[in-house]
Computed example of a mutant assay.
Amino acid sequence: MDAATEAFVAHRRLLYTVAYEMLGSAADAEDVLQETWLRWVGVDLEAVRDQRAYLVRITTRQALSRLRTLRRRKESYVGPWLPEPLLTTPDVADDVELADSVSMAMLLVLETLTPTERAVFVLREVFDLEYDEIAEAVGKTAAAVRQTAHRARAHVAARRPREVVSTADARGAIEAFRRAIETGDLQRLLDILAPDVVLLTDGGGVVQAAQVPIAGAGAVAEVLSRLATASLRPAHVNGHPALITWIDGRIDNVIAARVEDGLITGLYAVRNPEKLSYLRRETGLDRGVVRPS
């Protein structure tokens, strides 16, 4: 490989993760990577001091531009919009901070930030970039980035899950949830759902789905009881235990959960077939941060 290709391949997972966390769309993240590559091959590598930082800068700028386009597209989206789910490799769950940052619950919290706030938060809190590096990526001064980071951090802290649940606890809750549905045990299902649980279903106007959030354990349990005849298969989606629903040999939807204090407080069911293609092969993600051994 030539030097440009070698550098791009070496950082590809990191760049994809940056784009996905900023966009919540796997397909759009792939497009951003393609745009990053096209710009990268035209760069004079001898003038680049830090290839990783330079590539992250290109990716961030392309993702910011696309994020603004996506926001306009979401304004006309039919029903609740949910992130495009990823069938992630097992190592994603091993990095607790990475798994937390790409969870469906966290990606929905990030949707409440402005594009620049989201970029700054992701680059600082997830990828641990210095303020000067972030400033170059988003086109702001380092002082402005510090203020934005503080504002975004407070905004996210007020809306994110109260605790980071262990993989074992999340898997236990998902397994109890699956057994309750498959056995038609309504009481068992109600026992695992928080009284104020909220179910969001994303059909995108393509397939049938509730166009408003469904709230309350009773109402959610009634909707979920219709899945009793489907095949519910455990999987790791966005770094967390989840269920993929198969009907007649095809993926019908994916169900991810938000678990707090041993109960499911949020359910995210993606049915839009245009968002299910990344559930057939595993996707690797990487923060590019060295973790303690």
Rank of each mutant, 00 (worst) to 15 (best):
T183S: 14
V206I: 14
T89N: 05
R226H: 02
H155A: 13
R171A: 14
L23K: 14
A210Y: 10
V206R: 15
Q34Y: 09
L267H: 11
V43K: 05
V220F: 05
Q187P: 05
A269Q: 14
G262C: 06
P90I: 05
Y77D: 05
P241D: 10
Q34F: 08
V156H: 04
Y20P: 14
R179S: 01
R271I: 01
P83I: 06
W37H: 10
D94R: 13
T167I: 09
E84V: 04
G42M: 05
E274H: 12
R73D: 08
A157T: 04
E35F: 09
P83M: 08
Q187Y: 02
H11Y: 14
T167N: 03
A242M: 09
I214A: 00
A210S: 15
R162L: 07
A228G: 02
D132K: 13
Q147R: 15
T141S: 15
R118E: 12
I134D: 11
G204D: 06
R179K: 06
R68E: 15
E274P: 02
A143M: 07
E130A: 13
Q211V: 01
P85C: 02
E21L: 15
D196I: 07
V43A: 15
L14R: 12
I264T: 02
H155S: 12
S76I: 09
T88Y: 07
I255P: 04
E84G: 07
P234E: 01
T141N: 08
A26R: 13
E6C: 01
S103Q: 13
A256P: 01
G249H: 09
R118K: 15
R72D: 11
A105W: 03
E84P: 03
A219E: 13
A170E: 14
A149L: 02
L82T: 06
R39Y: 03
G205Y: 06
A180F: 00
V270Y: 09
W81D: 00
V92T: 12
G262N: 11
D196F: 05
I251H: 13
E125I: 07
M106D: 02
D132T: 08
V290F: 12
P213V: 07
V32R: 12
E75T: 06
T36I: 11
V259H: 11
Y278T: 03
D91T: 05
T148P: 00
G42H: 02
T112N: 08
T183H: 08
T69D: 14
V78Q: 14
R291C: 05
P292T: 00
A63R: 03
L129T: 03
V138I: 06
I192R: 04
G172T: 08
R179D: 05
R159Q: 15
W40V: 10
V109F: 04
P115A: 04
V96D: 05
V109L: 06
A176W: 08
E75D: 12
